[in-house]
């Protein structure tokens, strides 16, 4: 796969940065590809529309920022409003079904959504919503192998929460839209 530019968006506290970190770690440590992650800093990372950007490539990455993301994972309405216009034509847009209301704008994108918050609540902890999203993203986008992404989840989440997070990941991976 050639250079893939991914943007993760949501509000601060949803695990946006961790999600970007997990993709990058999966690609660069467990899949032997190259990955560069850059996260939003400043006030936006602590409340409003927060984002992380990840580039995954088979070749070393020269230019470190994303220019035209081809994949987006968005977990809040504000992030959707702010970031979705940047998505490249034909790009992949994954949203949290109940937190983002997607307008039909005629934008040429492949849109998929998942009720990740509901799934996370079923698992007993709303906090793992980002990991459900990561599982679904992984299955749909195939930027990394499943093993690499799952391993990156396991080693990146707080100790004692691995089992719950891996369940969340698997639920996301297996999710089939109704």
């Amino acid at each position: 796969m050639a250079r893939t530019e991914i943007k993760i968006g949501g509000f601060g506290g949803q695990g946006v940065i961790l999600s970007g970190y997990i993709i990058g770690r999966a690609a660069s440590i467990y899949d032997n590809k190259y990955a560069t992650m850059i996260q939003a800093f400043g006030p936006e990372a602590r409340g409003s529309a927060c984002s992380a950007q990840v580039i995954v490539d088979e070749e070393p990455i020269a230019y470190p920022y994303i220019t035209r993301p081809t994949m987006m994972v968005l977990m809040s309405q504000e992030a959707y409003t702010r970031f979705s216009p940047e998505l490249a034509p034909g790009g992949l847009l994954i949203t949290e079904e109940e937190l983002v209301s997607v307008r039909t704008t005629g934008q040429d994108v492949r849109h998929l959504s998942i009720p990740a918050t509901r799934i996370a609540e079923e698992l007993g902890k709303k906090m793992v919503v980002n990991i459900v999203m990561m599982g679904y993203f992984g299955a749909v986008a195939r930027v990394t192998s499943k093993e690499a992404l799952r391993k990156a989840v396991e080693v990146s989440v707080p100790k004692g929460t691995q089992e719950l997070n891996l369940k969340a990941f698997d639920r996301g991976w297996e999710y089939v839209p109704a």
Partner: peptide, 9 residues
């Protein structure tokens, strides 16, 4: 800042 806050292998 770019190099300091950039995450890579």
């Amino acid at each position: 800042e770019c190099v300091g806050h950039m995450t890579e292998r």
